[in-house]
Design a protein around this nucleic acid. Structure first.
Lengths: 214, 214
DNA sequence: ACAAAAGTGTTTTTGTTACACCCATGT
DNA sequence: ACATGGGTGTAACAAAAACACTTTTGT
């Protein structure tokens, strides 16, 4: 009952951010192929901790929203060895500078989800699932705030929703809905965009927290 | 990068059914404690397959709805050894007789979720999470049909919803909603309950399938 | 005749969608 | 003055909730 099979247990992370008006994933280059950041879970390491550690080591990202997605364990998902992957997705706030973070040890690149190269193993399937989950969660949680910088305008928040959902939203209805959720508050500051009226800046009321709606 | 840590990977299953008007879980007795059915994943075995196999071996249940829930991997969840559990939940149709199934090799018992004994390891937390997921899924899928026998009355289906949600529902609104989903059809038969008017029997249009709503 | 659950529509309330103009700023 | 995105309310519609009586059977 306590037999231990030889297997490789890994944590793999899909780090999402909005880059240049598109939903993008941070990929890591390994030899000639691209893969998700991630790697083996340590012998005494928590799964979430392993995911955070690999993300930090390979990309410099830390202190971000992380959520377990699904565990992939088909016997043949990695040719040659038995590998089980606990997949996560992470949300990176726009404006977060990778340069601020510890220099990454691997070559990394933000790639738009609609324009992904061939990925290692079943990583493409992991990205697809993560994307579906993220889009679904927009409808019943305040998860989009995890993609926003500390201060943001309502138009920026709306754009994030539109990019993830892939459809345009009505400005007045969107604002009504978001403000009714009571999850953001005006800072009192104004965004100094030029060429038009300045926009009010908002911040999350509970920055780290994702609330459920209804 | 390919180091293999010695660890025990298991699949654990929360088998739900409606028993005597309550939501119940099938537990397995091991020595003096109760635990969820489940056990080690084989070296060349798919995770889902391992879950189905252990469920069949330990309880005789087969051919039922099964869905991955979450993977638990805290280093200390099992004292002494590193154990990672991929948790599943399963739905057993009311009226399914365990006697029909292969004789179970372990002592098993259906226990109401509100009346659970102390369980091994973190199995209580797994049950709690599974229960939340099941209740949430009622709202946006036809998953409740997986708990019904082949033929059932609308009142029986309503009772299942009420038991899982823990609240009473309006009969007319419930029927309107369910019938609008176009997921069940009348068989033409009547249920011969005694002492009152017979009820029309229904069956699922797509028995194995769980549809999403909206 | 009575008890017990089955069956059936309409009204009210709530939430969602559609929609157009003025405002503040930089050039 | 004009170009640009910021900001605002209301009416129509759809969906959800509230609500009570008649029907069919067994005893």
């Amino acid at each position: 009952m306590t037999l231990r099979i030889p297997l490789l247990l890994t944590a793999e992370i899909v780090p999402f951010a909005i880059c240049t008006e598109r939903l993008a994933v941070l990929l890591v280059q390994q030899a000639t192929t691209w893969r998700l950041p991630g790697g083996p879970v340590g012998g005494e390491e928590d799964l979430d901790a392993a995911a955070r550690r690999h993300l930090a080591e390979q990309t410099g990202l830390g202190e971000i929203y992380l959520e377990q997605l699904y565990t992939f364990g088909e016997p043949n998902r990695d040719s040659g060895q038995r590998a089980v992957a606990v997949a996560y997705y992470a949300l990176v706030r726009a404006g977060f500078s990778l340069a601020d973070a510890v220099p990454a040890i691997a070559e990394t690149r933000w790639v738009a989800v609609d324009d992904m190269p061939v990925l290692a193993l079943d990583h493409a399937a992991i990205v697809t699932l993560a994307r579906r989950r993220l889009a679904a969660k927009l409808a019943y949680s305040t998860i989009a705030l995890q993609l926003m910088p500390e201060c943001f305008t309502l138009s920026q928040l709306q754009a994030v929703h539109e990019i993830i959902l892939g459809e345009l939203l009505d400005k007045r209805n969107f604002r009504k809905r978001i403000l009714a959720l009571d999850c953001i508050e005006a800072t009192g500051e104004m965004a100094r965009q030029y060429g038009h009226r300045p926009a009010r800046l908002f911040r999350a009321k509970r920055p780290g927290q994702v609330d459920f709606i209804k």
